[in-house]
Design a protein around this nucleic acid. Structure first.
Lengths: 201, 201
DNA sequence: TCCAGAGTTCAATATATTTTGAACCAAATA
DNA sequence: TATTTGGTTCAAAATATATTGAACTCTGGA
């Protein structure tokens, strides 16, 4: 399905393994309706063994500086990547967050929760409209019931968020019958040594 | 923020409560990156007290027949609405699924699971590429590790699906320390009586 | 101070998605 | 059989989104 071996050694274009990782995250991005370029960038950084500088993202992926800049900014804002400072190199290096738990957790907090909270406010608005308007006669009760159902589910979702957060850090094959136990795949306090001058051979 | 009272009695346009429900689901649809029209249609049907026919969806929402047809088809395919047969009326009537649990459950099965399964196949493809290609020297081990991490998380997600499904049917305020208990908000075997000739006054 | 490199911004362009509406089909009715 | 009604299809138009690339800013030398 994909062509033979022979990986271009570096510098321009991706080797076949990188290309597959990138394809994976492009598909992921598509599923989440994010731009392709975001998937490409994350995929490239995810499979890299060292932090990579801006210009390498641009040249290896063959995308424009503009796209790279915007995509990196977005990924930073999501907490999906972070910058790495490399002494004696003016460029900023980027590395992917590879702890999926963190990614997921953060998405829950930064994307899902705000949406649910906004929903809550919209539901309040609905209820106010039901109060304010007459000539619904028999419908008024029905409207109230529907609004209440919406509110119930929204609240439920909000309450489930922290539980979900706990759930994903439980080692799966043993189903979680006690929740607040330790996290198996926990943090390692590695002091984040910058790599020994990577990139630009 | 929204203008006074005085609801247009019917026939054309929405009353102010309907308008708010529709706005809510439009925002919901946007969050899920679905077309506005899908949100409008679902919102209209969700707040209706009886099943509504195609032509009313069109005229009340002021969208084209094409949009309505496609949106309804989509919502049917998601199981978010269903058709209702009304004797002595050629039109098909639609009603929203108001049991959120069903909606959610179904989305998990029909949308999330297939994506995860596709991901699994893509990860296999990555691993095959790692096998096939040489000249990665020291990188090969790193690639394998990254691929393994991906596979691990994907499998975990797949395993969590049924648990999630259970979770949402648990009454929330009492946290779930036993999972396989009964479902409080369970099915009611109502025999689905068609409404007494609604619509078209 | 000037220059070169790194990166950002943003208007223009390219792409993708939604919506419309006219043409069409099929079933019920005249 | 012809007509009307209910609804679908699909190509074209309208909108929305992503990408590019040229102009720009900023910083660190020389």
């Amino acid at each position: 399905m994909v062509s033979p071996k022979q990986d271009p050694p570096s510098a321009e274009g991706l080797n076949s393994v990188e290309a597959e990782f990138v394809a994976f995250f492009v598909q992921m991005a598509t599923a989440l309706s994010l731009p392709r370029s975001v998937g490409e960038i994350f995929g490239y950084l995810f499979c890299a063994d060292e932090p990579k500088p801006f210009d390498e993202v641009v040249s290896r992926l063959g995308i424009s500086k503009g796209s790279a800049s915007q995509g990196l900014k977005f990924l930073l804002s999501m907490g999906a990547i972070s910058t790495v400072y490399v002494p004696r190199d003016r460029r900023t290096f980027y590395e992917a967050e590879t702890k999926m738990r963190k990614l997921f957790s953060r998405a829950l907090q930064e994307s899902v929760r705000p949406h649910l909270e906004a929903n809550g406010r919209l539901i309040d608005a609905i209820e106010e409209h039901i109060d304010r308007s007459q000539d619904h006669e028999s419908l008024e009760e029905h409207y109230r019931a529907r609004a209440a159902s919406l509110k119930g589910w929204n609240d439920k979702a909000l309450q489930l968020l922290p539980l979900l957060d706990k759930l994903i850090s439980v080692p799966v094959p043993s189903f979680p019958f006690k929740f607040f136990g330790g996290d198996s795949s926990g943090e390692n306090g590695k002091p984040k040594t910058p790599p020994a001058k990577p990139g630009k051979p």
